[in-house]
Amino acid sequence: MTSVASLLPQDPAKTVAPIERSPGYWSGVGKRFRNDKLAIAAGILVLLLILMAIFAPLIAPMDPYAGRTIRRLRPVGTDGFPLGTDELGRDMLSRLIYGARYSLMMGVTPVLMAFGVGSLIGIIAGYVGGKTNTVMMRTIDVFYAFPSVLLAVALSGALGAGIQNALVSLTVVFIPPIARVAEAVTTQVRNRDYVEAARASGANALTIIRVHVLGNVLGPIFVYATGLISVSMILASGLSFLGLGVRPPEPEWGLMLNTLRTAIYNQPLVAALPGVMIFITSISFNVLADGLRNAMDVKV
C-alpha cells in the first residue's frame, strides 16, 4: 500500500537526523542554577553553617558553657578568646559555633513541619474542591488573618516559653501560607487534561494524586517553603530574643543577643556578633531560595 507520504518528495535532513533526546527539565534547572553565582555562594555558605552545627564539638576551641566572672566581657581579639567573652565570661567563638545547632534547628524545623502539614491540607483541599475546599481554606484564612509575628508571639506566649512550644507556634504560623500555595497549585493541576484522562481511564483519586498531582505540585510548594526559612530563622531567634524560645544557658543566637544587650555600652562589637550570625544565615537562605526559584522557573 502506497501511503501519501511516500509520494511526497523526501526531505533529506528529516530522514538522516537521528532522534535526539531533548534535554529534560532537571538538566535545565541544573544549568540555570550553575550559572547563578550568587546562589551558589549562598548555597556553600548554608552548607558551611550546617557543617559547623554538626561538627561544633570538634571545631569549638572551648566549652561554650564554662564561664568565669573574672574574665567577663573581654573585647574581640583577646588572647585565647578571638571573639571576646560574654557577660558570664564564656568564650564567644565557641558559643557562636554551638549556637548554629540551636538556631538552624529552630529555624528550619518549623518550615519542614509546616511543609508536610500545609502541603497535605492544600493538596486535599485543592484536589477535592467544593465544600471541603471552602471549609478547609476558610479555616486557614482565619490564621492567615494574623500578622505572622503576632501569631507566633501569641501562641508561644500562651503556651509558655520553651523550645518545643516555640517550634509548635512557628509551625502553626507557616502552615497557612504553605497550604494556600499548595491549594492554588493543586487546583491548577487538577484541571489539566492529563488528570481528566487518568480519571476517565479509571484511576482512583489516590493514584491520580500520587502519580499526576504530587510530582507537579511538590516542586513549587518546596521552592516557596525554602523562601520561608529565612523568615523562620529571624522569627525563631526573635522568640528566643524575647525569652520565649531557647532558655539560658543554652547558646542560641537570638538569646545571646538578648543577654548581651546590657553590654552594648562596654563591648558593643561583642554584643552585636550573634546578630551578625543570624543575618548571614538568613540572607544565605534567602538568596539560595531566590536562586532555586529562578532555576526551577516557579512563580508562586
Binding site: 529565612s230 526573635g238 531566590d290
Partner: peptide
C-alpha cells in the same frame, strides 16, 4: 534582599 533578611531587632541594637 538585605532589607528582607536582616533581623530587625539586631539592626535596632
Amino acid at each position: 534582599v538585605i532589607g528582607v533578611s536582616v533581623p530587625h531587632y539586631w539592626l535596632g541594637m
